[in-house]
């Protein structure tokens, strides 16, 4: 009985410790996007702190711009001043940063969303799960196929309600920073009007549990807004 209690206690302590290990993530990011007739390059840094749940994107290219996502607000900061505020849905809990810190990236936030798990299959080295939308959303949404490889999110295929593939996302080149696994390359291919739109996002120099001074400066600015 004693042994069981000790084991249980140890298990609980380990669980609590592992879930509290990661509280912030930061790094450099680049977005390359090419669609019909237009291209986009974004270069910058990002920070996210799970405690106050602000996402900061500090861009250096195409222009020096800072965007802070806080609850239902998206702030644009230019030259140390809040230039604009846009109301957006509160999606911080669905962010790649939040999911990664909570080690829930492998299901991409589908658990607890409008989607329900229909079935899981194993094909080659992929574990493929099929998610179907709630009956209230079936009119507009199609199924989602999500695959994991070595327990890491590998790819997502989005369908429309007529079973056509509308978008694919691939999560590649995972890096391990202080024990946290994060994809350093995200490839997105959208199929719009029989054309492919390609976007590649790369992340590098990922830092964990290191809140930079600029993050504090921007969040202070938001608090005083």
């Amino acid at each position: 009985m004693k042994k069981v209690t000790v084991l249980l206690f140890f298990f609980i302590i380990c669980n609590v410790a592992s879930s509290q290990n990661f509280y912030s993530i930061g790094g450099e990011y680049t977005v390359k996007n090419k669609s019909d007739g237009a291209s986009q390059l974004i270069v910058g840094r990002f920070y996210y702190n799970i405690n106050d749940q602000y996402i900061v994107h500090e861009n250096s290219f195409p222009e020096k711009e800072v965007y802070v996502t806080a609850d239902t607000n998206l702030f644009q900061i230019n030259n140390g001043k809040v230039e604009s505020r846009t109301t957006i849905p509160d999606l911080t809990h669905f962010s790649i940063y939040h999911l990664a810190l909570n080690q829930q990236l492998s299901n991409y936030g589908l658990e607890g969303s409008i989607y329900k798990l229909e079935n899981v299959d194993k094909e080659d080295d992929l574990v493929i799960s099929t998610w179907i939308p709630d009956k209230n959303f079936k009119k507009n949404f199609g199924k989602i196929l999500l695959s994991t490889k070595n327990k890491q999110l590998f790819g997502i295929v989005f369908f429309d309600n007529l079973e056509n593939v509308i978008k694919k996302q691939f999560f590649e080149e995972y890096v391990n920073s202080m024990g946290l696994s994060f994809p350093s390359k995200v490839i997105e291919i959208a199929y719009v009007n029989n054309k492919e739109i390609i976007q590649v996002t790369t992340y590098k120099n990922i830092t964990i549990n290191d809140v930079p001074e600029s993050y504090i400066r921007y969040t202070d600015l938001i608090h005083s807004y």
Binding site: L91, S95, I96, Y97, L110, I114, F141, V186, Q199
Partner: peptide, 18 residues
């Protein structure tokens, strides 16, 4: 809503894509 697909698609996961 004036926000790029990077934020919606990559950062905001499934909800953003939706």
């Amino acid at each position: 809503l004036g926000i790029s697909s990077f934020i919606w698609g990559c950062v905001f996961g499934i909800a953003g894509v939706a």
